[in-house]
Design a protein around this nucleic acid. Sequence first.
DNA 1: CGACGACTTGAGACTGTTCAAAGGTAGTGG
DNA 2: CCACTACCTTTGAACAGTCTCAAGTCGTCG
Lengths: 278, 278
Amino acid sequence: MNTGFKSPLSAGNTRQSIIWPPRLEQKPRQNPVLVRLQSFAQLSAYEIDVLQGLPALGRGHAVQTELCAERRVQSPRFLLAGWACQQRLLGDGRRQIIRFLVPGDVIGSVVDPTTPSNCAVVALTPVTVADARHVLRALDGTQSAQGLTNGLWAMHNAAELGLYNQVVRLGRQTAYERLLHLILEIHSRLNEIGQVDGESFDFPLTQEVLGDALGLSLVHVNRTLQQVRRDRMIELRAGRVTILQPKAVQEIADWDSHKQDDGVSSVHPRGLFDAKQL
Amino acid sequence: MNTGFKSPLSAGNTRQSIIWPPRLEQKPRQNPVLVRLQSFAQLSAYEIDVLQGLPALGRGHAVQTELCAERRVQSPRFLLAGWACQQRLLGDGRRQIIRFLVPGDVIGSVVDPTTPSNCAVVALTPVTVADARHVLRALDGTQSAQGLTNGLWAMHNAAELGLYNQVVRLGRQTAYERLLHLILEIHSRLNEIGQVDGESFDFPLTQEVLGDALGLSLVHVNRTLQQVRRDRMIELRAGRVTILQPKAVQEIADWDSHKQDDGVSSVHPRGLFDAKQL
DNA sequence: CGACGACTTGAGACTGTTCAAAGGTAGTGG
DNA sequence: CCACTACCTTTGAACAGTCTCAAGTCGTCG
């Protein structure tokens, strides 16, 4: 039985709630939502303008703040800085992290903001968010916002791909493979927002959090990390990862075979709302 | 290492390809797409009409037919009869089933049919499908199709919920819990299309397929099934499941805490395409 | 310095895997 | 009608991967 995990929300929350303002890298270097959307679609000057105007909501949130409760209707927001995750708790306290959210990601659903969320969203580092309704309204304005629409759909699709990756990791990969695969995925996602420097990037997750995402115990994450380091696959210290042998890591994690397309894609989403052109 | 699973598509496909017409229950009792959408949203007479007219595509597909290849653009279809699954194969042949598709489910994406699929879809039983473009076109016609839109969004959302369930099962539940949880989920989904009779329903999955969905070996699925039977939790023989102790099963599988809403919900999806009313 | 959180280490137990083989069952063809 | 085949299920035994429990270390911050 996989029981007895510390509930991440039950206790010890008092100290956390005053860690604002945060210590590190809280200023978005450049608006990550804009950068990410541009990696998916061509944006017009008007659309860029709308995104530049994204207003940060409040003064940010401390670690372990619940940014969105489970089964709650919540207007969509963008994550501007910091990391968060979607998670679910089992009755006995076991936690499963469904996916990580990094700057540029959507909190809640842009495509259907009126449906209750399927799981909770929790801040893993101090976090800054922005109201997404501002941007959504632009889709409906007088000016065309096709690029924005395409980009948001592509992000939605990328999120689904991430979920499939998570299922495959948990279902059919070993601890060693899971760890490397997750790191590759995060590398790829941070790359989309320009927060990768060569082969290294910030990685502010504790081993406990990693375990809850990878379906492993804290202890086993620790040992697997040591193994990975011993094999000189990656380096991981002080909240920063460097991938030492990209080729080998991709090979082991079976990354290539399902890798996302790189670069700007020419997506032209339609469907529910534009079915004629099929 | 989790290696050496039989590739489900590599061999032995010759015999299968002539099993048409299939042996059992291939006539949809009632159009499952219609029934399912009505369980999510109020439909107008016009909308019901559109759905009644769903034309079956061809004469159906045999077991193990690939209904949609990975990374391929494919116009969306509905599954009218039979079971399928979304799956991914690792380089060494390990298979992970991402989710099961039952009658009424969408193959591909209704919301964005022009994006390449993130994984393959494979028939698990003989299968009948219908072209969904027929229905999508109705969304764009002169007549309002708000109910249809709401229903399709709700289905999309339900699919996402199913994915989250899958992640939690694989990441944080034991074999015993996983098995029961999956059975409850399928029970709930078949219930939406009226294919549950009391507490029992058709369940045409082999133990190998179950293993690939639950992230377990065939052998362990077998032993877990026996355990579950010994405990008189469920009965499973001849492709049919009966849940003997619903309460106990829900308790063990931690089902209640994240259970879907039952009954007709009053969803009014907006978002990308109707942002003003936020 | 003391406290707290994160990381590390060891030992033993348990869950689930692999390999191998045997039994069951339903279509197929003689 | 029966033997044959293919697939599915069941069983046993050894083993590997991962977990739990329990300490102990390290670093940071007040």
